[in-house]
Design a protein around this nucleic acid. Sequence first.
RNA 1: GGGCGAUUAGCUCAGCUGGUUAGAGCGCGGUCCUGAUAAGACCGAGGUCGGUGGUUCGAGUCCACCAUCGCCCA
Length: 1037
Amino acid sequence: MFEPVDSRQSFPKLEEEILEFWKRHDTFKKSVEARPEEKTYVFYEGPPTANARPGVHHVLTRAFKDLFPRYKTMRGYRVPRKGGWDTHGLPVELEVERELGIKSKPEIEEFGVEEFNRRCRESVFRYVQEWAKLTDRIAFWIDMDDPYVTYHNEYIESVWWVIKSLWDKGLIYQDRRSTPHCPRCETSLSDAEVALGYKENTPDPSVSVKFRLTEESMAALGDKLPAGGATYVVAWTTTPWTLPGNTALAVKPDATYSVFEVEGDRIVVASERRQDVPEDATEVATLAGSALVGLHYEPLYEPLSWGVPASWFDAAEDGRLVSVDDLGTVENGYVILGGDFVSLDDGTGVVHVAPAFGAEDFQMGKENGLLFIQPVDLRGNMPDGSPWAGQFVKDADAGIMGDLTERNLLLKQGEIKHTYPFCWRCDTPLLYYAKPTWYIRTTAVKDRLIESNEEINWYPEHIKRGRFGDWLRNNVDWALSRERYWGTPLPVWECTSCGAYQCVGSRADLRERAADAAAVEALDDFHRPYIDRIELKCADCDGVAKRAPELMDVWLDSGAMPYAQWNYPHENQEKFRANFPADFICEAVDQTRGWFYTLHAEAVLLNSVGEAPEPLAFRNVICTGHILDEKGRKMSKSLGNAADPWEVIDQTGADALRWYLYTATRPGDARRFSIKLVQESLRRFFLTYWNTYSFFVTYANLDEFDPTKSGPGERTDLDRWVLSELNALVKKVTEGLDEYDPTTTGRAIQDFVEDLSNWYVRRSRRRFWRGELDDDKVAAYQTLYTCLVTVAKLLAPFAPFVAEAVYRNLVCAVDKGAPESVHLSDWPEAEAELVDQALMDETRLVMRVVSLGRAARQKSQMKVRQPLARVAVMVRAAVEATALKKLEDQVLSELNAKELVTVVGAGVSSEAGGLSVEELMAGEPPWDHLAVAEDDAGYAVAVDTRLTPELADEGVARELVHRLQNLRKAAGLEISDRIVAYHGDSERVAAVLATHGDYVRAETLADELVAGDPPDGATAEPVKIEGNEVTLAVRKA
RNA sequence: GGGCGAUUAGCUCAGCUGGUUAGAGCGCGGUCCUGAUAAGACCGAGGUCGGUGGUUCGAGUCCACCAUCGCCCA
């Protein structure tokens, strides 16, 4: 016997019970360990940070992360799933800063790095319980008991090994370059981080600034200019605060520049870019850009007088910066340069060059021996001696513009809205600063990065050559260092005497190089400030080496996860080899430049130095799209439109949520989300499946049907059809999941379940309902049983709870030898010999014809309960007519008719061959007894609405059955209860029952049909039979 | 400014390598059916397949350009 099934089952409640079962039986662990170690499918968990609550978008990726490991497990693979936590980095520090109410690095130093980092360590697991709870509740099976944690010493040790491996091959270097810098966090950011923080429509000043040529340069222009007043070259910028750092201008040598006379002055702009020049200004001359090259101009400001140091790129020192006291000694101070990069698409055709800020500016400085002046500190404030002392640069813009206006050096002042980068965590506008930064030379392996990307399957596919491929093609060296506190320390020490660097790759390495080995032995935390206290012996001299103060980019941590999760190579060498590379990873698409890149880059780099066995870290990757709210807006905390996963799970259950996420759109597309849509997936799919299951259990229990104790029975066409569809489905789902496509496969399962319920079961109901357990009934049970169980298995990776519930009841209840969980069972094999394409096509045709037939009946206003004599069908080909004849039972019983006639139409329309549908199907007129429905494809169905007395009697009999069944239901009787029925004193009813009494008794499980009034206690109802009122009643026998 | 993706019914989505008829679900109005079903069937309203050109015997589908939205980059 099967457990009775509640057709009104609460799914959230059911899921809680299943969770309990899994916990009790340790099912996850068993599911991993039941599979052979030598057949491993490798999954990498991209580590989340547990310092904030998980949201729906985390459920999205976790749903996909869970599906494929479950599927592969059922396919016989061992799929270990080690959890992990990302614990370092700026987001963590920011959270702690907020708690402490502090805002800057000096405040952290004052507070104490030791205590600060202790708090960071505590805060990263603040919401770990929430994460664990949600992970568990949505049935994302992952090992949370033994996760990798990026702050563990063992993890850090592996990250050091990564750096050391690259260091030894010269792939790590320090350089002073223009680097995106967050003035609030006082640290550099990587390109990947910058990419996370672009904001559109950011307003900035747009100013055209006049630079006055020196007297000498004006003179040098000589006869190219008519005599007149001062001459100004006009440059355009959106960052007035960089103007004190200006040390050069650049023009396009082959462009034409115009000289305009404005209020006695002359101003020079590119001829194509005169939009800022007053319209009434007269052009007094034109010049080639090359004529301006080499001229000098007066600086706008004198930062040296504010106490700002100056230096210059000294060619004699290989372009290194050398400090300078007298600007006049530098030949290329405040000079106009030629540059082909100068654009005539915007601005004035003259570019303001400040080597301390822009990347190109810095490069130009180096190439041309320019002055280098950095009049802004690392917190983004103007220097003390300046008129804007202590102001944040963006605030100083206004003052600078005001000053320039007063001095009549501003040609035009406006506002521009453009896209500008902000710090991805603290939202401060980023500044580009030239400062020393450590880099990984990823450009050295750029070709290999691109090449091995070809081996990766991307879903959606366009990411491979699109977003990710582009990123690789535009690869720049990875800015590695961060000037912060909570993170993996850069394992580089610098000699205080000779400046030599050394890099450390492990604890043992550190001990060996240390000035005091005992101090390393005693070191139980590799973080700052402890690590900073370790000093090394210099390898080159007698000096002492101190650690470079920087930390590493937190993204290096996560990209090192394939090695560091095992503390490789210091331990677990076998484990590492068995688990590299990953077969499958899955994250949101924003990880393209994040984890996907760092995993890939580190694998390629390590492979290039002979340390990783393959130049790729993952073979298959699914990128999920963003989740939007109901109105298509991105979900965000600030908008307050982020959906709470718990609300959905509590209402509909996790399976429904998962199902929605799999089937609503392809994984990579952005998707609108609302609880309504999840509820729809619950109703449309789960309830249909559940009720089919509940139906089976109800009747199987009544018949004491045991699938293990009976043969296949005698299959009908209907059985063969649904088994054919089932096996076609198994094939489709298997192939689909092998191609990492849960969306179309999920939809296919959904379609099958709908057919199973709304065709197979509907058409088969009577077989379950009546009579003994004969061969036909057995076939029906076996067929439905097979369908339900097979679907449960197909469903297991998608909807692990419902699949488990159905499987446990249908399989474990009767087969004690079966695995105790669907997740321990094997994936079904498609039986190709059961797939009958012709039968499936024929059945589709039947469905189509039946649908048309219902439309015809609708038109006739004749109840479907009333049997009709004849239904005529026009099909398009003779084979279709044959097929319909073969399956005529199904057509006739669905349409409640006695006889099926088929006609082959000439093709497209009812007018084919000059004959109407009526003529084609019914022969002679008149046809007023026909109700006809046709479609555009060339099919038509007509029903004959003439009733014989026999048909009318049968209609009455069926009407009585219908009414009595309703009464049974109203009386609250069990399906198997027997009754006595009463039908008043109607002659008409009595006459019908004389011929159809057996039928009515059988249908309603009536022992007796009594004419006359019901006794007290019976459930009664007056009904109209052919217009006459009759009181019907039932009572339990 | 460049790249990628999207644009099909009020909403959520299907429409394979171009091929007779553009579909489903939800929602709305109506009719019917029902002893598995919070279900189902049928009818109805609702579509310039984002726009404009082009290739072709034939374009929702291929190409070009444009528009809008999203993401990414500069």
